[in-house]
Simulated scan of single mutants.
Amino acid sequence: MAAILTDDVLEQARHGDTGALTAIYQNLAAPVHGYLAAKGLEDPEAAAQEVFLTVFARLADVTGGAAGLRKFTFSIAHARMVDATRARARAPLAVEYDAATDPRVESSPQDELLGRLESGNLAQALESLVPDQRECVMLRIVAGMSIEETAEIMGKSAGSIKQLQRRGLLTMKKSLEEVNGDD
Rank of each mutant, 00 (worst) to 15 (best):
E42A: 15
D132V: 14
E178T: 10
I147C: 00
G181W: 02
T63Y: 01
Q26N: 11
V95C: 03
T6K: 12
I147D: 07
V9N: 06
R167W: 13
T6V: 04
E118R: 15
Q133E: 11
Q163R: 04
C136M: 08
A67Q: 15
D183P: 02
V62W: 01
L5D: 09
R166I: 01
A87E: 11
P92S: 15
H15F: 05
F74L: 02
V142H: 12
D183M: 04
D102H: 03
P109D: 04
K39H: 14
E149P: 00
A38C: 07
T85M: 15
P92Q: 14
Q110H: 10
A20W: 09
G64S: 07
D98W: 00
Q124K: 14
V179G: 10
V130G: 09
E112K: 15
G120T: 13
D111Y: 00
I153C: 03
E135Y: 00
R58M: 09
S119T: 15
T101N: 02
F52C: 14
S146W: 06
T73R: 02
C136Q: 10
V51P: 12
V32F: 09
M1P: 13
D43A: 12
G64N: 09
S157C: 02
M172W: 02
G144A: 05
R80I: 01
A79S: 10
F52V: 06
D83Y: 07
K162T: 10
A79F: 01
M145H: 07
T63F: 12
A87C: 07
M1G: 14
A37W: 08
S128Y: 06
V142R: 06
P92D: 13
I153Q: 09
A87L: 13
I153F: 09
S75L: 03
R70W: 08
D17P: 03
A20R: 01
V32P: 05
S146T: 06
D61C: 13
S175M: 07
R134Q: 02
T6I: 09
G19C: 11
L53M: 12
M138Q: 13
L10A: 01
L93A: 14
D183G: 11
I76G: 05
R140K: 08
L164H: 01
Q26S: 02
L176I: 04
K173L: 15
K174D: 13
M1D: 10
D43V: 11
D8P: 04
T171E: 14
D7P: 04
V82C: 00
R14W: 02
Q49A: 09
E127S: 12
